[in-house]
Design a protein around this nucleic acid. Structure first.
Length: 187
DNA sequence: TGTCCGATATCCT
DNA sequence: GGATATCGGACAT
């Protein structure tokens, strides 16, 4: 692989649905103990606006946990579910607008075993991501950032996972984007 | 394919 | 103080 260019603010400040399609195929780089862990993003979900019943920001709610979702595009929103799994999100759009992308799976590129980064909890585990990255700026960080990849990928979309509680409308809306036929997309 | 459940931060009453 | 959560692994069916 040939990582080219670190993605800058203007990549992330576009609307979440635009960034979601564009981010597929991009590289995510984590520097951990002097080693680079690299994955290619193959699956994300969009959580968009205060109207999204599946979003932690539904109704414009702001809490100590979800405030990073409102940061200008390019910041990390990370939180724990079920007491043991971390969920890594990237804020998108302008400051003050609650929208983000949940990274659900990456394809191993460097420093990873086969399929160990498929699934949002597993991705965080192998990329060594936790609360210490809360609010981290991906355009400034020395330990976590994204790089461009000129390769074009074929994109498919479908309903988001695990949000039946949000009711039939929001549970069915196709805001999960993934690379067509890629074996590293979560099952 | 389905169900069970871990282990706890966070939100709400 | 109690309920719940953007999951994943294990094991039965």
């Amino acid at each position: 692989m040939k990582p080219t260019k670190k993605l800058s603010r203007s990549f992330y400040t576009r609307p979440a649905l635009t960034v979601a399609r564009d981010i597929l195929g991009k590289y995510i780089i984590r520097v951990y103990r002097g080693r680079k862990i690299i994955g290619k993003i193959v699956e994300v979900e969009v959580y968009y606006s205060a109207k999204d019943r599946a979003s932690h920001a539904f109704g414009g709610k702001v809490t100590e946990r979800n405030r990073a979702e409102y940061l200008v595009g390019g910041h990390v929103y990370i939180y724990l579910v079920y007491g043991l799994h971390w969920q890594f999100n990237i804020s998108t759009g302008p400051e003050g607008h609650p929208e983000c992308l949940l990274v659900r799976a990456v394809e191993p590129v460097q420093g990873l075993r086969d399929r160990e980064a498929s699934g949002p909890g597993k991705f965080c585990k192998v990329f060594k991501l936790n609360k210490s990255f809360y609010g981290e700026d991906l355009t400034e960080s020395k330990s976590l950032w994204l790089e461009d990849n000129p390769e074009k990928v074929k994109i498919k979309k479908g309903p988001r996972i695990g949000i039946d509680y949000a009711g039939p409308h929001w549970a069915k809306i196709p805001w999960r984007f993934f690379v067509k036929d890629n074996p590293y997309v979560s099952k």
